[in-house]
Amino acid sequence: MTPLAPGARVRVRDDWPETRGPAHIRTPHYVRGREGVVVRHLGDFPNPEDLAFAREAAILPLYHVRFAPRHIWPSGVSADGLLVELFGPWLEAQR
């Protein structure tokens, strides 16, 4: 997997593993399917989706990704930016 550089445009996978059975997901529902911009690579950490079930966990890149809250919610928004820590496999590079 090619590392994502700061400034890369990404889309969070519109995927809902919690609907398919027991799951532990650290990607908040509100960013799924949304576009954001990579701020920086924070480091590499074991996948919590496996750690939560005491399974062997792959080491994954973790990124700080910035979103525009006004593009997520239609109303009642006073945040100007939203930074979320997301693991590489959840991110699709956009052109």
């Binding site: 919690e18 529902h29 399917g33």
Partner: peptide
């Protein structure tokens, strides 16, 4: 972009409380 507001029609888990 999906028109649905996150948290209303999406199948979020109940601890996933943002917004």
């Amino acid at each position: 972009m999906s028109a649905a507001e996150p948290g209303e029609s999406t199948p979020r888990a109940h601890h996933d409380l943002g917004g």
